[in-house]
């Protein structure tokens, strides 16, 4: 399949589905509060552009802050785990507990502790909790997957622990870390949205609140518009991280070989 066709097919499918949707809604006269036509959603997007962009920016910044914290925290703790088995044994169960406890159930507690007046901090914390674990778990695995003979070779040449970490363990863990980042980027967005739903009140101003708000007032087209923006945000995060992965791995990693072959 040629490169152009690779992109043309899904785009054409998307346009066809939208056209069919538009046609069906008009033909059967579906009420706008049940299912708005794509044209109505577009109109709602344009009409509420300023407030939606404001909300998009809020959700985006919460997601990015949480993701950055998850990345730094996850990698830092993974490094700690790789250096000391004792620390790993002591801390890992708690990391798992944090991961398996449904975040929706913890959010009200965080809300009370942090306070409604710092709602964005609450959102960042919740999104961080969701995004943190895949980074920790995969990076730990990667740091430990180093070739034993290469470690021996580094030792033979008198390498320090730091040199082994920076020159051998980090590059070995890079594919795992990049894979985890793709998962965590999406999870950070989900966390930001879920937290805002749980927070409920009008204190939060992200896209999730726009959806709740539009639901209350039966502005279904606006709801769809906010939903579309969320999806676009998720796709953008995933695409950027995929691009980063490709840029860093395509010259040497096995995962890239099949694509070029």
């Amino acid at each position: 399949m040629s490169a152009a066709l690779k992109y043309a097919v899904p785009v054409a499918l998307g346009i066809a589905v939208l056209a069919l949707w538009e046609f069906l809604v008009r033909h059967y006269d579906v009420p706008v509060y049940v299912l708005p036509a794509p044209s109505a959603i577009w109109a709602a997007l344009v009409e509420n552009f300023a407030s939606l962009m404001q909300s998009l920016w809020t959700t985006l910044s919460v997601t990015l802050e949480a993701f950055a914290l998850a990345l730094i925290g996850g990698v830092a703790i993974a490094v700690l785990f790789s250096q000391s088995r004792a620390i790993e044994r002591a801390l890992y169960p708690y990391a798992v507990i944090l991961q398996v406890t449904p975040v929706v159930a913890i959010t009200p507690l965080i809300l009370i502790w942090v306070g409604f007046d710092r709602i964005n901090l609450v959102l960042v914390i919740v999104a961080f909790i969701v995004a943190f674990f895949p980074i920790l778990s995969n990076t730990t695995l990667g740091l430990k997957s180093t070739d034993h003979n290469l470690i021996d070779l580094f030792r033979l040449y008198g390498a320090s622990r730091r040199q082994i970490l920076m020159r051998l363990q980090f590059p070995t863990a890079l594919p795992n870390l990049l894979g985890a980042m793709k998962i965590s980027g999406g999870l950070a967005l989900i966390g930001a949205v879920v937290a805002e739903f749980v927070a409920g009140s009008g204190a939060a101003t992200g896209l999730a609140w726009r959806i709740v708000e539009a639901g209350h007032t039966l502005e279904i087209a606006k709801m769809f518009a906010a939903l579309a923006l969320l999806a676009a945000l998720g796709i953008a995060i995933f695409s950027i991280l995929s691009l980063l992965e490709w840029a860093l791995l395509h010259r040497w990693h096995e995962s890239a070989i099949k694509k070029t072959a």
Binding site: N149, L150, D152, L153, F154, L156, Y157, G158, P171, W252
Partner: peptide, 28 residues
């Protein structure tokens, strides 16, 4: 000064041939 060659080539897959050959010198 001692060097070791394993049964497998044991190269760093992310590093070019030159970077691999340079490893002992880098570490020193």
């Amino acid at each position: 000064e001692t060097a070791f060659v394993f049964q497998e080539s044991t190269l760093m897959p992310w590093a070019s041939a030159l970077d691999n050959a340079r490893l002992p010198l880098d570490l020193k």
